[in-house]
């Protein structure tokens, strides 16, 4: 007895000594898999298909990072998180990266201690109502019952919006998009509110999408992007530049179709050469191999390809590029230079 307790205390002391965390990059490499936090299912952004293979715009970011770090876009463990569980999952180290329609806000950055590495979708909060409700503006929603996902910026914006407009409402807090959809369709709430992109994606999965409209008001700014924990800047850099690689690739015309040819030998555009590793040592600076960006882009295509394939105008979700066009085309999507 005495001995076992003593041994126990020893192990405990040993554990305490070994508790200082290793770098995330080493962890991921040792594990051979990237743990990526995504939604519990929002078609277009992150949802498993019939074979359990995850697909979507946010999933694309996860796969690009996995490809850059591990050289394999499939080496991702997707961890479904709700609005409520996502931050705990990231802070506790259960996931390495969170890519879940998450809004970049000051308090999440400063108080919750997360580093947003960029924005992959500029969004805003909207309202969806059934056409039959006869409502054409969010200002007419006084007294309505509103479905919201808890643990989101949505519920805070909503409270502000109704207070500022001197209206009352009845919030119905819900944990996942699927439950919200069920309650909304059964008429247990009049309105569903969340990021406009999420509304479009949700509506696209309805049997009769045309019976529902999005109200014209967009009541907030919701820059959505991937985030990592504070405290490991090297890892933050890797995720940030993987995303930037996808964005720059679109800007420079590097697509999944021509990348093989472009990466075979250095071409006449020095920036493309640097991205694709045929010139300079950017990969080495990040602690990755020279082909990191090539692998990231080949994982699912460049930013524009990801957009068109998952949520673009030719998909059921049918989002136009709008704010999310490249800066050269009048949008906000802009990558710092690869130099």
């Amino acid at each position: 007895m005495k001995k076992t307790v003593f041994l126990g205390a020893l192990t405990v002391a040993g554990l305490a000594a070994g508790a200082s965390a290793a770098a995330t990059l080493d962890d991921v490499k040792a594990r051979g898999k990237l743990n990526c936090g995504v939604t519990t299912g929002l078609v277009g952004f992150a949802a498993p298909d019939a074979n359990g293979h995850w697909d979507g715009f946010d999933v694309g970011v996860c796969r690009a990072v996995a490809a850059a770090v591990l050289g394999d876009a499939e080496a991702v463990e997707f961890v479904p998180t709700t609005g409520k569980t996502r931050f705990t999952a990231l802070a506790s180290g259960e996931i390495d990266v969170l890519a879940r329609n998450t809004t970049w806000t000051l308090s999440r950055d400063v108080d919750l201690k997360f580093t947003f590495v960029g924005v992959n979708y500029y969004d805003g909060q909207g309202f969806m109502v059934p056409k039959g409700l006869g409502v054409s503006s969010a200002k007419e929603l006084d007294g309505a019952t509103v479905c919201i996902q808890t643990g989101t910026t949505t519920e805070l914006n909503l409270a502000d919006f109704f207070r500022a407009n001197n209206m009352s409402y009845e919030p119905v807090p819900i944990e996942t998009n699927a439950e919200a959809q069920q309650q909304y369709l059964a008429g247990a709430c009049d309105v569903y509110t969340t990021d406009a992109s999420g509304l479009a994606a949700t509506r696209a999965s309805f049997e009769a999408p045309a019976d529902h409209i999005l109200l014209p008001e967009i009541i907030s700014k919701e820059p959505l992007g991937p985030l990592v924990r504070h405290g490991d800047n090297e890892w933050g850099d890797i995720v940030r530049w993987s995303l930037n690689a996808l964005i720059s690739a679109e800007e420079l015309g590097v697509t999944s179709a021509n990348i093989g040819e472009m990466a075979a030998a250095a071409g006449d555009n020095p920036e493309i050469n640097r991205i694709l590793g045929t010139e300079g040592n950017l990969g080495e600076m990040l602690g990755l191999d020279a082909g990191w960006a090539k692998a990231a882009i080949m994982a699912g295509g460049n930013y524009g390809e990801l957009f068109e394939k998952n949520i673009g105008e030719n998909t059921p979700i049918g989002l136009s590029r709008g704010l999310n066009a490249q800066w050269k085309d009048g949008g906000l999507i802009y990558s710092p230079p690869f130099r």
Binding site: G83, K84, F87, T88, A91, S107, R108, D111, L112, K113, T150, G151, E155, L156, V172, P173, I174, E175
Partner: peptide, 24 residues
Amino acid sequence: AIAVGYMDITGTLGGITLNQTGRE
């Protein structure tokens, strides 16, 4: 309670407050 969106103390203090403030 939170399974049905009933705002008990787990839903407020242990749910939304925890989540919005990050004070697990």
